[in-house]
Nucleic acid binder design. Structure first.
Length: 596
DNA sequence: CTTAGGG
DNA sequence: CCCTAAG
C-alpha cells in the first residue's frame, strides 16, 4: 500500500529541485507520477521533511488503517501517509504537478486525491495530520526521482484545522467526494456549509472591503490573513489583491473543497519566492480558483491540482463556452512564468470548468479549451463546400431550419457559380449526394447546369427560372422575397406551363408534367409542381368569386391572370368532381373520341 | 419512385 | 419549399 520512506532528510529539497529540473524537460512524458511526500511545516513556515521516526509513526498508523483505505486503482501506485507532528494543524502536502497536465493525468490525479483524502480522513481520526503522496506511476523512493514533475502542496491551517478537525465537518467533507468533481457537482455544493469553517469569517468580509490599491505588501498580507485566517508570505501584490478580493466577494472562500487542497503552501525550501505564498485559493469556486490562479509557480499548479476533479469537458460544453473562455484566457490566464511548456490545466469560466491547455499562438501563449482529437463538431469548410456539403449530408440530420438554411446556401452557391459560369464541383457533388429533387436534374441534362440554358421562351413577365428574376421589374423585390433565398418565384410562364401540363396530362401527373413540360427546368421538381398547383388552386378559389381583378396579386407574388386562374379552377373541378374511376373512364372515352 | 398532404 | 407517409 505504501512504501517506506527512506531518507527524508536533505533528500527532500534535492528531490524537489531535481525533479523540477527534470520535469522541465519531460514535456513529452504523458504519465505524471504523483509522488506524495510527507513533510511538516515548521514554525517559520518552512517545509521540513519528515524524520524517520515520524515516518515510522505514520507507517504504523497507515498500516493500521490500511484495510480501510480504498486507495487508488493503480496497481503500481504507492501511497505514503506520513505523520506530521510539527504543529497541530500544519502539514504539508507534496505533490507532483509540473509538466503536462493532461486530462488523463488529471483523472488519475483526482483519483489519488480521493484516496488521499480517505487516507487523511482515517488519520484525522487519530488526530493526526497526515497526508499521502501517491505516485501514480510507480513508487519511488525520495532519492530516485525521475519525477517528471513534482508538486508541493501544503496545507497551512491555522487556528482551526478546517478540514481536519474532528468536528464532523471534516468527516462530511471527506465523505463527500463531490468537491473534487466540479463537473458533476456543479459549483461546489458544499460551499455554504464549509464556509462556516472559515476562520474569522466575519472579520475578513467586513474589514477587507477596502481599497487594496494603496496597501503595502505587508498590509496586503495582513489583509489576506484576516480574510482567510492564515498567513501568507506571498509578496506578489497583485496576487494578494486578487485573492483578497476573491475572498471578500466570494462567500465560498477558504479551502473547503478538499482536505488537501486549499491552503497550500509551497515552500520548497523557500527557494522560490512565489512558492512562499500561501496559496489557498480561498475560493472553492472552481472558477475563480482556476481562472485567477497565481501562475508562474508551483502554486499555480498546486491550485489547479487541488481544485476539484478535473473532468474532460464535453464537446458540446466546450463549444459553448469556448468563445468566452478564449477571451478570458487570453486576458487573465496567460501564464507569465518561466514555464514554457504546454500546461494543461483546468480552467473554468463562469461556473463551468473546462480543461485547457496552453498553446503558443502568434507568439503569445494563450490558454485554450482542451478538445479531444476525436471528431470535432463540424469542420469549417469554406463556404462553397459548406453549402454543398450541408445540402447533401447534413441535411439528413440537421434540423429543419438548419437544413433549410443549408440548402439555401447551396442554392446561393449554385447561383453564384451560375453567374460566374463555373460549373465546378457542384455538378459531381450533387450527383453524389443527390436528393430526390436533384435526381431530376440529372435526368434532364446531367452535365449541364440547366439554368444556364433556359431554352424556353421567356415571356415579358420574366420567367426563366433564373434568380435574375429578382431583378425583373415586375417581380417585387421585397425583403421577404430576398429572405427566401433559394425560393424561386414562379414566373407566369411557368405557371402557364404548369396549367397547360395539368390540362394535358391531368392533375396529379406531376412527374409526367415535369418531364414533358418542364424538361429544362432543373429546379422544379414534381413536388414543386404539385405544390404550386395547390397554391394556384387555392388562389383561384379564394378570389375568384368577387374579385374581378384577375390580376390582383397577392403581396410578393406575381400576378396571375384571371384567365389562368379560371383554367385552374376548371381543371380542379374536373379532378374533384370526378372520381378517379370515373375520370379514368372519361379519359378513355375522350381518347376514343379523339379528344385529349 | 410517385403522390398526396401536412408543416 | 421541405418532409413523410402511402402506394
Amino acid at each position: 500500500m505504501f512504501g517506506s520512506v527512506e531518507d527524508y532528510g536533505e533528500m527532500f529539497q534535492d528531490t524537489v529541485t531535481q525533479t523540477r529540473g527534470a520535469s522541465l524537460s519531460s514535456e513529452n512524458q504523458i504519465g505524471n507520477p504523483v509522488v506524495y511526500k510527507l513533510v511538516r511545516v515548521a514554525q517559520d513556515g518552512r517545509l521540513v521533511p519528515a524524520t524517520d521516526e515520524e515516518m515510522l509513526e505514520v507507517k504504523d498508523l497507515v498500516e493500521n488503517n490500511e484495510n480501510d483505505m480504498p486507495i487508488v486503482a493503480d496497481p503500481g501506485q504507492t501511497e505514503e501517509c506520513i505523520f506530521d507532528e510539527g504543529s497541530p494543524s500544519q502539514f504539508l502536502q507534496l505533490d507532483s504537478f509540473e509538466g503536462l497536465f493532461q486530462p488523463e493525468t488529471a483523472e488519475a490525479y483526482t483519483e489519488n486525491l480521493n484516496s488521499r483524502l480517505e487516507c487523511k480522513e482515517e488519520l484525522a481520526y487519530g488526530s493526526q495530520m497526515l497526508v499521502t503522496f501517491p505516485d501514480t506511476n510507480y513508487y519511488q523512493s525520495s532519492s530516485e526521482l525521475p519525477w517528471n514533475e513534482e508538486f508541493v502542496q501544503s496545507e497551512f491551517l491555522l487556528q482551526e484545522p478546517v478540514c481536519f478537525s474532528s468536528d464532523g465537518c471534516s468527516i462530511d467533507q471527506s465523505m463527500d467526494v463531490s468537491p473534487y468533481s466540479i463537473a458533476t457537482g456543479g459549483s461546489s455544493p458544499k460551499v455554504p456549509a464549509l464556509s462556516t469553517t472559515t476562520p474569522n469569517p466575519g472579520v475578513s468580509r467586513d474589514t477587507d472591503n477596502i481599497c487594496l490599491g494603496n496597501l503595502s505588501i505587508k498590509a496586503l498580507q495582513e489583509t489576506f490573513r484576516t480574510t482567510f485566517g492564515r498567513e501568507t508570505t506571498c509578496k506578489d501584490k497583485l496576487w494578494l489583491k486578487r485573492k483578497i478580493k476573491m475572498g471578500q466577494v466570494n462567500p465560498c472562500a477558504m479551502p473547503t473543497t478538499t482536505l488537501t487542497d486549499n491552503d497550500t503552501k509551497l515552500t520548497l525550501g523557500g527557494q522560490d519566492s512565489k512558492a512562499d505564498c500561501i496559496k489557498g485559493h480561498p475560493n472553492d469556486c472552481p472558477v475563480e480558483a482556476f481562472v485567477d490562479h497565481y501562475s508562474g509557480s508551483e502554486d499555480f499548479e498546486g491550485e489547479h491540482r487541488s481544485a476539484k476533479r478535473v473532468r474532460k469537458a464535453t464537446r458540446r460544453y466546450i463549444e459553448e463556452i469556448s468563445k468566452v473562455d478564449e477571451k478570458q484566457q487570453s486576458n487573465e490566464s496567460v501564464i507569465p512564468s518561466k514555464d514554457e511548456r504546454s500546461i494543461s490545466s483546468a480552467v473554468s469560466s463562469g461556473r463551468r470548468v473546462v480543461v485547457t491547455r496552453m498553446i503558443s499562438f502568434a507568439g503569445s501563449r494563450i490558454q485554450v479549451p482542451y478538445v479531444s482529437h476525436v471528431r470535432r463538431s463540424r469542420p469549417r469548410e469554406n463556404i462553397m463546400a459548406l453549402g454543398e456539403f450541408h445540402s447533401g449530408l447534413w441535411e439528413v440530420k440537421a434540423t429543419r431550419e438548419e437544413s433549410k438554411l443549408n440548402l439555401s446556401q447551396s442554392h446561393l452557391n449554385n447561383d453564384v457559380k451560375r453567374v460566374s459560369g463555373v460549373k465546378s464541383v457542384s455538378g459531381p457533388v450533387k450527383k453524389k449526394l443527390t436528393t430526390h429533387r436533384q435526381s431530376y436534374k440529372d435526368h434532364s441534362k446531367p452535365e449541364v447546369d440547366q439554368d444556364f440554358m433556359e431554352p424556353e421562351h421567356m415571356d415579358s413577365s420574366g420567367d426563366s427560372s433564373d434568380d435574375s428574376n429578382y431583378n425583373h421589374a415586375d417581380l417585387p423585390i421585397t425583403a421577404s422575397a430576398m429572405r427566401r433565398k433559394h425560393h424561386r418565384a414562379w414566373t407566369l410562364s411557368e405557371v402557364k406551363k404548369l396549367v397547360e401540363g395539368v390540362s394535358k396530362y391531368g392533375v396529379g401527373k406531376w412527374c409526367v408534367i415535369k418531364r414533358l413540360s418542364f424538361p429544362s427546368y432543373s429546379h422544379r421538381t414534381p413536388v414543386d409542381l404539385k405544390d404550386k398547383w395547390r397554391n394556384l388552386l387555392r388562389v383561384s378559389l379564394a378570389r375568384t368569386p368577387l374579385n374581378n381583378m384577375g390580376s390582383v396579386r397577392k403581396q410578393g407574388s406575381i400576378a396571375i391572370p384571371s384567365q389562368v386562374l379560371s383554367q385552374v379552377r376548371e381543371l380542379a373541378k374536373k379532378k374533384s368532381h370526378v372520381s378517379p374511376a370515373r375520370k379514368a373512364r372519361m379519359v378513355k372515352a375522350s381518347s376514343r373520341h379523339g379528344f385529349l
